[in-house]
Design a protein around this nucleic acid. Structure first.
Lengths: 334, 334
DNA sequence: TTGAAAGCGCTAACAG
DNA sequence: CTGTTAGCGCTTTCAA
């Protein structure tokens, strides 16, 4: 690869100073129409692309944002990241993606690495904690634990509690009285919120919660869910509905039921959460809580952009409404 | 955020020159044991993190690699990216992820943007074309169109032709004689290779290909697949098996069949490709061609690392074997 | 074994 | 409207 051209060479070729070239590129300062055109032409003719490292060093704004995400393999997160990335690219920003694999250690390593790279901003998806040490670096928290004391930050989440409630109510209204809840452990506050919604629905219908039907999985994995349901079935646990805090878990449950010859929704009803493709494809179609990921990512990108670009100070906690996508897995007479 | 410390301050605090600090950090040059310890301590005590922009400017090696991918939402790609990112992070590299949404224009914009950022290397997943203008920038092509004339590059792909063959043979051996093939258009050479495998299997069993059963979708989407199968069913097209070039398409097909009251595998057999979660979860479980993504990503990361880090020149075309994961969707007596 | 100093490519303050 | 210039933080010769 021939050495990349520098602003100096462009300046020389255009017969102006580097400052002028810089001004033209960044559309600030003032310059004559003619100069601009000449510079632009030289830039074009030479395929000149400014060196971002130099720019970053000089301005400490790199036009790169870091996105920290537990696991890009999770369709819910993948969707979020896809939209964020495309949206931000349109606005001139690139994205460094960092998978934490749910490890707090990896997460903070990534935070360090991102600050070292002078990122212009960070989107922290479903993070473990707040990083106040980031100071005034623009950060948008999405789906994150809401245990921070001060509200001086931007945060976007779905109404997970309501989602848990909706799913559970659907099961109850379809006739379930002994509902198993499939959730994952970990400090994921979403899981907890969904569980709270679950309890609210039970309360409302005066159904007693059965502790033995509350399953806490070590990880959000189809296989874990499948095994635990098989285990419960083989112990002849009595339940007529499964409320899963994730579509992946719901899918694992459906598979387990199928393996034991049980039919959904004839024998057991099931609900999921996130309304991913898998919910539409699995079994007879799984009723699932729909999160508005489009809006979520659009908001996150927009807010972050405003903070990075316009230097706006935003402090707001958004809670997006959810809805229930009803499919066959809960279609019994009500 | 208090201003980040610079190497100068560390040098002053440690009572040495910046050059020495740099040497300690990069483990080159020579320095005494004592000096090293002192410097290290100061670095630690001050949470000093070198400024990557400056480093990048100076060395034009940023320790950032660009990953270009059609759509991170596709589980197959998500998996690949996840592994790449984690693997490279372990080796000290961060990843800029770029979704092209299958647009050639976006792809080349991303290529430009990546070079502007002085990335140390690029992984191009399922790209549209070769970018020879990248010169000696390390590039690994994964899953890419193999239409380049010169082989002077690194390329890793699955044996897609064999995969298409395996899936089709499974259908034939399970009794299918009229196999519909569900594939997507576009310049995706994988699709074509899978189709070639399909034809090879037909040939081998002396089955004539029926052009009317070859469906080309505009996009790889569940919904598209579903609609086209519904369309075929409503036109009373005669087929007893569906070979899908993607799990997503297979899932769409299964949904359509279910909607029309057809049972898999009783009435119609189905195969997918990629062996994603959705294949395990969908319908009765979909038989699918398994690609060894772990190995693929591990190889890609390793090769790229060797090129970036050790300056190795590698020219090799790897074709990874595939296997068939048999599930209920093809379980009829053979 | 260490330090001084040049300079990577760019921007922004200042001068004109 | 445009040019000169200092310097962002780091690495790397060269000299000691």
């Amino acid at each position: 690869m021939e050495k990349a051209k520098s602003i100096k060479e462009i300046a020389k070729l255009a017969g102006v100073s580097t400052a002028t070239v810089s001004r033209v590129i960044n559309q600030n300062g003032r310059f004559s129409k003619e100069t601009e055109e000449r510079v632009r032409r030289v830039i074009r003719e030479n395929d000149y692309i400014p060196n971002m490292s130099a720019k970053g060093l000089r301005t400490s704004r790199t036009r790169v944002v870091g996105i920290i995400v537990p696991d890009i393999t999770n369709p819910h997160f993948a969707n979020l990241v896809l939209h964020l990335e495309m949206d931000l690219f349109r606005r001139g920003y690139s994205c460094l993606i960092c998978n934490t694999n749910e490890s707090e250690e990896l997460e903070s390593k990534h935070i360090q690495s991102l600050t070292a790279q002078n990122v212009s901003g960070i989107v922290l998806i479903s993070g473990m904690r707040n990083y106040e040490e980031l100071g005034d670096l623009p950060v948008v928290y999405v789906d994150r634990p809401s245990n921070s004391q001060d509200k001086e930050e931007v945060m976007i989440e779905s109404d997970n509690e309501e989602g848990g409630y909706l799913a559970t109510r659907e099961l109850i209204q379809s006739g379930c009285r002994h509902i198993l809840i499939l959730k994952s452990l970990g400090n994921d506050s979403n899981q907890f919120a969904r569980y709270c919604g679950f309890r609210r629905a039970l309360d409302e219908f005066k159904i007693k919660e059965e502790r033995s039907l509350c399953i806490n999985l070590k990880a959000v994995s189809m296989e874990e869910a499948r095994e635990s349901i098989l285990f419960m079935l083989d112990r002849e646990a009595k339940f007529d509905g499964i409320m899963s805090t994730t579509d992946t878990l719901a899918a694992g449950a459906v598979i387990a039921l199928r393996e034991r010859g049980l039919e959904v929704p004839k024998d057991i009803l099931v609900t999921g959460f996130d309304d991913c493709q898998i919910a539409a494809a699995c079994g007879p179609g799984i009723t699932s809580v729909h999160q508005d990921i489009d809006q979520m990512s659009r908001m996150a990108a927009k807010l972050l952009f405003e903070m990075m670009h316009d230097g706006k100070q935003i402090h707001h906690h958004y809670r997006l409404p959810v809805s229930l996508t009803v499919r066959n897995s809960t279609c019994r007479s009500k």
